[in-house]
Design a protein around this nucleic acid. Structure first.
Lengths: 230, 230
DNA sequence: TCCGGTCGTTGCGCAAGTGCAATGATCGTG
DNA sequence: CACGATCATTGCACTTGCGCAACGACCGGA
């Protein structure tokens, strides 16, 4: 069992103001975990015993309704904390976290949260994260309440392309596997409608898509479709 | 100018663990404000210079889209803090706060937030508030994404009745004025559809409504309609 | 008391998007 | 390499709920 390197944490906002010694301490308390695609890191409603930092991969935050419909709230990119129930004054997880692609994360027992909170910059930065997520969800409500399906799907693709896209010569590729069904769960539609839209956009040269892969080839045109035009 | 009474704050969660002397200090820093129905306490995107505690009335948190559609995110009842941008690591307000009915609130300059954060229980409790609001908005996303209009309107009425209803012999009355248009803004529909639903429910004896007033007379039947059935 | 503004209701036609169903493509596994 | 599972596509019929339009009720102010 080899030691984790300090450079893993030092550039990340929650830890950036900490001394190497402090980072060392924090790392020594961490338990790394590997989560194959599709596995849950934790489940909605379960007691929040650990919180996590995503090192690699992507985490999908999902809520499931009583009827079994699932809604994808957001995707978390590497470098961010997640499962931070204590920052919300909760002792259970508010949603389920699933690995969207194979993921590596560090985990700490929840009691350490309150220790870390004493480090300079740690709480400030994590609350900023919470604020950003709240803002994002808020934007989703607005979107769902006011925009048509086509615009919502366009927005969802753009959001993913911006937050977790990789530039290739063909355009911006969304780096984790995503099915039509996932997109439907993010936008409150059906697989069918998403499929039809993507087909149409593919014909129009706006996106290129393969099984579980989407590349946005003409972001500007998607922006127009999303209704953010002005 | 008379002094505010300490009993105003002492029973409220963020302050409940403070000594009378500490509460006295906090009160001395506060500026009370009166907001007639319909006036804005602060606007979306403006620099967050103050944060507030609602003493009486109701605050409606609203977001307005570029196209001018407005979405009502939530209602804040008396006793809660609002405009707490710093708790989200922000320096501008994320939404507009409008008085849903005549309201009285205490305001403090934002720099005091960081002083208050030192008081025992203050931050814990406010983060709990943030967590609860996040949970509520999250639930709204789920609702908007999975439920039909009728169920969403039923849920919205129930939520308001639960959180800010007053029991009367006729049923549960929502205590602040609410128009069909407001309900439409909460559920992402149109005035028309809301009006039709309320008319139907009135005929069925589930609600009673007057201009800007709604009384839920048969909550259980509304619960069934909301799809929370099992 | 009249008048303008806000709020609410209802009928009708239409379009967006769903539900259903059938088919096909692709992947991983034994 | 064959099979089952997952993922994707597409046509068609149907329903929900929106847009439009017109009207009516109620409230507050001059």
């Amino acid at each position: 069992m080899h030691k984790l390197d300090e450079s893993l944490l030092s550039p990340l906002p929650p830890f950036s103001r900490l001394s190497p010694a402090e980072i060392r301490e924090i790392l020594d308390e961490a338990t790394p975990g590997r989560y194959p695609e599709g596995t849950a890191v934790f489940g909605e409603g379960l007691p929040a015993e650990r919180f996590f930092l995503l090192l690699d991969g992507f985490i999908r935050v999902v809520r499931t309704t009583r009827e079994g419909d699932q809604v994808i709230a957001l995707h978390i990119p590497p470098g961010q904390l997640f499962g931070i129930a204590p920052a919300l004054g909760r002792d259970t997880y508010p949603a389920t976290a699933v690995a969207a692609s194979e993921s590596i994360a560090l985990g700490w027992p929840i009691r350490l949260w309150f220790e870390f909170a004493k480090y300079d910059g740690f709480s400030t930065e994590t609350y900023r994260t919470v604020g950003a997520r709240l803002g994002e969800i808020h934007a989703r409500v607005t979107e769902l309440a006011t925009q048509a399906v086509e615009q919502r799907v366009a927005s969802a693709l753009l959001r993913m392309a911006n937050q977790s896209g990789r530039k290739t010569e063909a355009g911006i590729e969304i780096v984790f596997p995503i099915t039509r069904s996932d997109i439907a769960d993010m936008t409150g539609t059906t697989v069918h409608t998403v499929s039809r839209l993507l087909s149409a956009w593919e014909r129009a040269g706006i996106v290129a898509s393969a099984r579980r892969r989407v590349v946005v080839t003409a972001p500007h045109r998607l922006v127009v479709l999303s209704g953010a035009a002005k």
